[in-house]
Amino acid sequence: MKKFIIIISSLSLLLFCNTELLAQKDKSIDKITVEVDGLGCPFCAYGLEKKMKDLKGMKKMTVDMETGLVQFNFPADGNLSVEEINAKVEEAGYTTRNINIERANGEVVSENFEIEFEEVDVSGYAEASFHVNGKCKMCTARIERSARIMEGVGFAEYDLKKKVLTVKYDETLIKPDNISEKMALVGHDTDTYKASDEKYKSLPPCCLYKRKKS
């Protein structure tokens, strides 16, 4: 019995130390997520990985070909910036859409590199606001862009705290219901439309908001 207690205690101590070490290791790692446009084939990802490897310390890079999502870890003391990451994507010959850095200290740095939309004269446009689920700045960029590219939408602004999307739209061309449906198609639940599980799971980890049980 005494031996059994000693073995159990030793194992517990080992497990505790290991967990502590893992936690410490996690605290020294920044987690980077980049949405890259233009990865039309797996060969394209080689050029990208090669350039990312120039960032000394880059580890565990994964590329999802279908979503263009590139994820990797980087030592926190390297203090990697969004500008450095964007420069590497450009050198590889591709286009950055979004960069999200989850710092080891809990800080989140996000940058949206979307194309800027031309200003539209929205006088005479109708206005609507509705609930859209989202969690981070990448969500904000995706939600606003997805609404803004729709024909008839002249303005789109997402309030991340209130989780409300406000749009100004041409009533002869589009209805708020169409915009709400589009949000679900890009992975964001609204009060009237729910994104498919597949689409929701394809969102970057930082964008996985809490879903209401249906």
């Binding site: 949405e35 446009d37 233009g38 990865l39 039309g40 979503t67 286009t95 859409r97």
Partner: peptide, 9 residues
């Protein structure tokens, strides 16, 4: 000339 979209170019 280069125009990129998600998973297409």
């Amino acid at each position: 000339f280069r125009r990129d979209w998600t998973a297409k170019t």
